[in-house]
Simulated assay, not measured.
Amino acid sequence: MICKNCSSSSRLRAVMYILGTCLGISRLPVVAWAKDKEIRILESSGRGPYPMMLKEKFDYYNTEYDPASELMKRPFTAYADFQSLAYDEGVFDYVIASDVFEHVREDAKGFSEIFRVLKKGGAFILTVPYNHEWEQTLTRVKVEGDKDIELLPPEYHGGGGQTLAYRTYGRDLPDRLRSFGFSVALLNFDAPQLAITRQVAFVAIKEGYLDVTKYHFFETDARMEPHRASPLFLFRLFSFLKYNSLSVPHFISEVRRRVSDRFPKS
């Protein structure tokens, strides 16, 4: 389900809803969140309108994976390898990976690295292709040294379908995350008032107490009044002008990325 105002998907809205829950402000739209540059967030391959808003409000780094880029070896750039992050220990309050880890070649290294760079009590917000009926994760591509061995017909995701999926996760994922030291909550929820369809996500806390009631979406949430169009017209107009018309560099970079995804160089 795509938002008519910002073109965000239901999954992306769910991720922001969870981040807002962590911050204690889930009932506010992202554009209305207070600025706090003391909060540091790392994300991989953030898409849609949210990265621009998060960058304005927090110390936020939205990164891409590019093995050819030397910038992946330097911290606080636009590039990062989640299997080998160029950051010191305990520097991020939140790490977000939305439908990324099925593409991470050695995901165990990625989980370990995220645990390392999170602050104590920091949260890892994760969505992946997940089947709760499966006891074990389905490996599509087996990794042996530098070799990728296809066990199943290749499956590609992402813009233009260019990114190889190494796995589809099963019920062993929470225990795998716990093995790195995380406390883990599996969230299976919807939020009709925000047009969020049924989503599965994980919140993993580093070396901290996980208050699962914080992530329960009670009946009071379900009874919240939906956002109606007319009272929000001026607010939406302001948001459109601020985050679209006045954000030409971001718009151009998104167009270039989408064109590159759609028409990859041969």
Rank of each mutant, 00 (worst) to 15 (best):
A201F: 00
L177T: 12
V203A: 11
F189V: 00
A201R: 04
P192C: 11
V212I: 15
K206M: 09
Q199M: 05
I196M: 09
T213S: 14
F180N: 05
V212Y: 03
V200H: 11
G208D: 12
N188I: 05
Y215F: 13
D175M: 08
E207S: 07
F180G: 05
Y215S: 00
D175A: 14
S183C: 03
F217K: 10
K206V: 10
V184E: 05
F218L: 15
S179C: 03
A195Q: 12
V203N: 09
I196R: 02
F182D: 02
Q193K: 06
H216D: 15
F217E: 03
F217C: 07
Y209W: 15
E207Q: 13
R176K: 10
E207L: 05
R178V: 09
G208L: 09
D190K: 09
I205E: 05
A195Y: 12
D190T: 10
S183W: 01
F189Y: 01
Q193H: 08
V184C: 04
V212N: 07
L194D: 15
R198M: 12
A185H: 01
A191S: 07
I196Y: 04
L186C: 00
S179V: 06
D190Y: 08
P192D: 15
R176V: 14
D211W: 08
H216L: 12
K214G: 12
A191F: 04
D190Q: 11
A185V: 02
A191R: 15
A204P: 06
D190R: 14
R178T: 15
A191T: 10
K214D: 04
D175N: 14
A195C: 11
A191W: 02
F189E: 00
G181C: 02
A185W: 00
A201Y: 00
S179L: 01
E207N: 12
A201H: 02
D190S: 07
V184S: 02
Q193I: 08
L186Q: 01
F180L: 04
R176W: 06
R178Q: 15
R198T: 04
T197C: 13
Q193D: 13
K214F: 01
T213Q: 12
K206H: 09
E207G: 09
K214Q: 13
D211E: 10
L177A: 10
L210S: 07
Y209D: 13
F182K: 02
R178L: 05
L186S: 03
D190V: 03
F182G: 01
L187C: 04
S179A: 08
F189Q: 01
P192N: 14
D190M: 10
D211A: 14
E207I: 01
A191P: 06
L194H: 11
R178P: 09
R198K: 08
L210E: 13
D211V: 11
L194P: 07
R176G: 09
Q193N: 07
V184H: 02
G181I: 00
V212A: 08
I196S: 08
